[in-house]
Amino acid sequence: MTDQDASIESVLGDVELLRTRVKNERHGFWFALVLFGILTLGSLGFYWQRLSGGISSLHCPGLGTKSVHCIATIAGTSQKVEVISTCVKGAKSCSGLVLSLSGGNPSQMNWLNPGFNLNQSGQWLTLYWSLALIIGFTAVFVFYQHRASITGLRVKSWPAVVIGFGVLALAILFNAVLQPSGGTLLLSGDLWVRGTTPILIMSFGLLALAVLERSIAYMIYALGFIGVALLATLYDVVNFFDWLGIGAPFQGGAHEFPNILLPAAYLLLGGFVTWAVQHDVGVALANDVHE
């Protein structure tokens, strides 16, 4: 290798080293992942379910040994209820632990999860998630601003906050204003019934943040989270846990817990791994500079 070679190679090497260093010091995605992971985990208590005293009658149209759909009369309105049932062959009615309920009343401030209103907890869940999402997105914005003033590298985070608030406002608007007047649930059914719609709202904000971070890896991870959020919204994750052989602790009232634990674990794991990788790259770069 000639001096000319070495000099050009060294300039290109320096450029690459600078790029890696700035990229590593610029990223703050781990914070959003950890924060939203904690907020998701914090909602767990709202998903504990017991047969509500408000259910006055249950009729079992089908047969089943584990979980069946029943028609319940709650406050004078017929609603579809899924229960861990004693509805066995020949039985005319079912009773047991209510797992989920669709077609709930979007009034009573239960705007984010209109299909999820067991134990009268729907409105509290809506309140929790409304506050959690507002606080979460605001905290992410404040974190990026604070970080910019400390490191000297500014990442534009406000568009992600606007998208998060926008999707939240749309969900509330649909359920609080448009649905009651229309009489039926817009996008009714599974999208609202498990009470996990806020996790889906959160996932859009996180994807926007990953795009603003200009990291392909973050974008892929955020897209993966949209997949996890859709799964938690449209499917009983406990079935998957059962299939893995770890579903036993989640029977009965804890039936809905896997729908919260899976996205929370995904976020927390991603947050800690991202932070650890960033930290290790930072240490390696510092060692390179000192050498």
């Binding site: 450029v15 790029r19 700035v22 590298l153 500014r154 534009k156």
Partner: peptide, 21 residues
Amino acid sequence: LGILTILHEGRTVEFGYLKET
């Protein structure tokens, strides 16, 4: 070249960061 590299990766960068880096 270093300044432009940092700015390209960081987009908006404070004077002190450039000075130190």
